[in-house]
Design a protein around this nucleic acid. Structure first.
Lengths: 150, 150
DNA sequence: AAACAAATGATAATAATTATTATTATATAA
DNA sequence: TTATATAATAATAATTATTATCATTTGTTT
């Protein structure tokens, strides 16, 4: 964990931003809850446990900054809320998501499955791909089992 | 166009909803501007030209209804606004989008490029895919040319 | 220590969306 | 056809997420 904090610190410094205590507390929450897809409000409440004096606006500002530096990805699953997701270390692209329409669970797919598709987009459409967002909506393993049973 | 209105009318009736004049006006706007990706506010203003007495809430309600019936897809490109996109006739899945990070233009990719990827998701993850959202962010043809010139 | 810039906290403002409510249109049953 | 239930609507209030403002604090440089 400290290693990753360090890396993020360097990424910030490279653009002459500092890792303030508030920013560090926010990053720590993101690291601890890496599997989750937290909203700004969620993150705010969790950061408050570590640093009760922090303001909501600071959390938003920090997330915005981390977003610009591609340290986190801002994603929206269709409810009106933005969620923030740490990029895996060294990952060039944003990972994919499987959203269950029954139970609302969100699973991450880290493999990049879009290599071929991106080639098609670049060759046939002349569109230079920089990043992607891919989300599948469907029924997760658990909910499939539940349906069979009932 | 009348043919497609008719189809939508039937889809509504099948769930015992009616195609009221307000709903029809909304659908007509969506059909006329099929290539665009309009926000609820955009649609409201356009519908008002046909039916000036319509209320914004009705447009929202209509779009919500059409969304549930999978007649339109609600999509969010990262600005805080939901956009509404008619499904192509007979299309099983939502089409893909190419969003230019320079000029903001949005291009549609109607071909379904995800067949193989969906198979992987179903086989390896045991996730039963019902629909997908795929958006590429990058630089469109026009902006690439512009960059070379300058 | 003085001066400057960056970052923060508190809170006001904004924008998108949803809820409420009274009214109107539509369909149904006597 | 008229009475009655139901669905849909317009207007607008309320809510929610996010952004902007601004006074204060922190940290850095000279």
């Amino acid at each position: 964990m400290e290693h990753r904090i360090d890396r993020i610190k360097k990424q910030l410094h490279a653009q002459s931003y500092k890792l303030t205590p508030q920013r560090e507390a926010t990053v720590r929450v993101l690291l601890e809850r890496e599997e989750d897809h937290l909203s700004a409000e969620d993150i705010y409440l969790l950061v408050k446990e570590k640093a009760p004096e922090i303001g909501l606006a600071t959390v938003y500002r920090t997330l915005e900054l981390l977003s610009e530096l591609k340290i986190v990805d801002k994603i929206n699953f269709g409810d009106g809320v933005s969620r923030y997701d740490l990029r895996k270390e060294g990952a060039e692209h944003f990972h994919h998501h499987l959203v269950c329409i029954e139970c609302g669970s969100v699973e991450e797919v880290v493999d990049d499955l879009l290599g071929d598709v991106e080639k098609i987009i670049e060759n046939d459409w002349g569109f230079q791909v920089k990043d992607h967002r891919l989300t599948f909506h469907g029924i997760c393993k658990q909910c499939q089992k539940a349906t069979v049973k009932s």
